[in-house]
């Protein structure tokens, strides 16, 4: 049996993209794990899942808290059409997360690059409201 993973990866080319996030107020003072999860969420939202071409360590799996793990499991289940067996394969779950984050980080940077300075937060705010309203939560 393969040894459990001790870290999550990004595409090597994504390092500079993650570094670029630091310049935006929204991402300041957040950890790489947080950036990864955010990118994963955006990738999932836009359904952009890209396999990693070359792997580069991003953070340790021990950094993940239960709610982070739950999100990754949820993503894995949804991506495999609720195949519960995926839950017994952490490596696969993490790979799915990495691929969505790989797609997400590119979307984020594209969005940042195409919005006026300081306007990214406003876009995010609007998106969040639109998303929330679409959920029809009572």
């Amino acid at each position: 049996m393969a040894k459990d993973r001790d870290r999550l990866f990004m595409d090597k080319d994504d390092r500079k993209l993650y570094e670029k996030l630091e310049d935006e107020d929204l991402f300041k003072n957040k950890s790489r794990k947080e950036h990864f999860l955010y990118a994963m969420a955006i990738g999932f939202k836009c359904n952009v899942r890209l396999p990693l071409e070359s792997r580069d360590g991003l953070f340790r799996t021990t950094d993940l808290r239960p709610e982070d793990e739950s999100l990754i499991k949820t993503l894995a289940l949804i991506s495999t059409e609720n195949n519960l067996e995926i839950l017994s394969n952490k490596d696969e779950m993490y790979t799915i997360a990495e691929e969505y984050a790989h797609g997400g980080i590119r979307l984020i940077i594209d969005r940042i690059d195409s919005t006026p300075f300081g306007a990214y937060e406003l876009h995010c705010e609007k998106d969040l409201f639109d998303t929330f309203n679409a959920l029809n939560i009572e």
Binding site: L26, Y38, A41, F44, I78, D127, L128, T131, F132
Partner: peptide
């Protein structure tokens, strides 16, 4: 910003989360 970030991370999973909870 912190709120936007935190919710940006999870809000799109609301439906999947509900599905998994149901399962």
């Amino acid at each position: 910003n912190s709120i936007l970030f935190d919710y940006g991370k999870i809000i799109n999973f609301w439906r999947p989360i509900n599905q998994v909870i149901e399962i």
